[in-house]
Nucleic acid binder design. Sequence first.
DNA 1: GCCAACGTTGGC
DNA 2: GCCAACGTTGGC
Length: 159
Amino acid sequence: MSHWLLKSEPDVFSFEDLISRPKKTEPWNGVRNYQVRNYMRDEMKVGDLGFFYHSSCPNPGIAGVVRLSSEAKPDPTQFDSKSEYHDPGSKKEDPRWLLVDVTWEATFPKFVSLDDLRSAPELAEMLILRRGNRLSITPVSHAHFTKICAMGGLKKVPK
DNA sequence: GCCAACGTTGGC
DNA sequence: GCCAACGTTGGC
């Protein structure tokens, strides 16, 4: 099983928004980056775990854990001319952009802030902490996943 | 295929 | 609002 970190701007869609959704599940639409699209297509599997990261906000950091609940499938917003994610160059018979469904798994008793991540020496290699990293989904090692779950106050690491 | 211009991301 | 980083676009 692989582990992931998924960024979302809480003004647009927050961890609390996910919890309030039916079945605590949301289609992760709007990815318009080829590298992230390829992660979804080639590497992300049903049952994989991920962190829900709040970005571009006063207190960036990780709010909790999610689980991937679908395989990659076409993102319908690419065909919706009213959507900000509309891509007129994508064809129905050959969709350019994919999404996966994401389901709430666990809420961290203690929010793990970006400062917390930066201050943990064993997390120094995390992609999210590298300058200029702008991918909205990044892989997370099993060791980092376990460490961050502990920092978040989870008694049991989801698996 | 190169690369300058442009747009977006995201922390501060 | 600033700005560094970097992906994308488009002229050639």
